[in-house]
Amino acid sequence: MPVARVAVPTTVDEAVQALRETPGAQLLAGGTDFCVEVNFGLRRPPAVVALRRVRELRRYEVTPASVVIGAGTTYADMGGPELSSVLPALAAAARTVGSPQIRNAGTLGGNVATASPAGDTLPLLTALDARVRLRGPSGGRTVALGEVVTGVKTTSIAPDEVVVEVVLDRRPGPQQFLKVGTRNAMVIAIASAAVVVDLEAHDVRVALGSVAPVPVRAAAAEAHIADAIDWRAAGGPRASAAALARFAELVADAASPITDHRSTSEYRRRAVQVIARRALERCVARAA
């Protein structure tokens, strides 16, 4: 009976080495996607490289300008007090993932490498133009998230590369993440949206999940609303109801959702504009 070989490296370099030595090996972080595929008989890799003991992946670092999050950081860590104080929308996204057991196991690196259209952290990472640091046999490289995630569950990560960390620039201002599912917890997103408002640069970033093969930015909506917001209004920035309505329309235009067993394309398009608008309204007041 062939039993998959398991490598248990303790450093990233050892993990890369293990990947090189066993072609077809599968990296295992939290296993919250991979193990389901194994259980369903969809995946039978000849070898597994388990990352749980690679402690350097579990670090994160907050500086005035950026946040660097190790790929092994769990959803529970992301939802914890330290990261939620600097990246509240990432924390909100992390808290929507699965159950406490899943959040204790699943990792940011796993979410990136799995590249599911419904990956819950991906909209916020997309909104913040996240950069992904990878390491392979010939050293490290840093790639924009949009170039890592190339399609539905496909990435540009080489078979012998490991996701090491994700780098996010800090933006001064409010941010929100909203996710629609048919159940009030433990549910795959039917549609999700992250909104990040930069009070200094006067810009708005909007990224959408589960409404396209990959997470997408709503660039036209961003440009429209950044222009329409009265940034210097007393009591904080505000936008008119008409501007918000137009913003929602432009958000829907950025979506190209499908109909599947979870929902319909029509509903996803509707849902994403409702939640993007609500997310923005939690960041920017509606003008009377």
């Binding site: 909100a92 929507t96 909203l178 629609v180 159940r183 917890a185 433990m186």
Partner: peptide
Amino acid sequence: ILALPGGAGATAG
């Protein structure tokens, strides 16, 4: 917000 429709997804006010 967990007590509102949408629960953990924080969709509703």
